[in-house]
């Protein structure tokens, strides 16, 4: 693994508590690694298995979902649905020998502004240690 490896990380982020905290982190000038690209979703319950797989297929080294804390979902159970879909996707990633540890779920409550930056840093450190997504180093597979 090259020391110069900088991971590409996708953070599917709920529009409510987590995205608001990401926004506020920016307002407050808190920095987080540029490796993380945020995709805002109306609720983490909207995230399907294919969205997580596509991120890895398109070259993400790590993916995490940032949800409202359990019991705090604005749509009642969206984060619980997301948690189950993550578990299902983790099994696929293990079967593919990509590694389920590249996919994580994290929770943020309103007011936890520094937590967003902290999670981004933790995920970046973790994925950097894991190295590149093995799919990226492969051959010429493509979809017709």
């Amino acid at each position: 693994m090259s020391e110069a490896f900088e991971p590409t990380i996708i953070a599917y982020t709920c529009h409510f508590c987590p995205y608001e905290m990401a926004d506020k982190a920016g307002e407050q000038g808190l920095s987080y690694p540029t490796n993380v690209s945020i995709i805002e979703v109306p609720c983490t319950g909207r995230i399907d298995v294919i969205h997580l797989l596509r991120a890895f297929q398109d070259g993400a080294d790590g993916v995490y979902v940032v949800a409202c804390k359990e019991g705090e979902c604005h749509h009642k159970t969206g984060n619980l649905v997301a948690k189950k879909r993550l578990q299902y996707t983790k099994k696929i990633l293990d079967d593919l020998e990509i590694g389920s540890e590249r996919l994580e779920m994290r929770y943020i409550m309103t007011g936890e502004v520094p937590h967003f930056a902290r999670i981004a840093q933790e995920m970046t450190d973790k994925i950097r240690a894991l190295g590149p997504n093995p799919v990226k180093n492969g051959g010429a597979a493509h979809k017709a």
Partner: peptide
């Protein structure tokens, strides 16, 4: 998507 990734990984 899964099969495409498996193939990609194996080259």
């Amino acid at each position: 998507a899964a099969l495409a990734m498996a193939a990609q990984k194996d080259g």
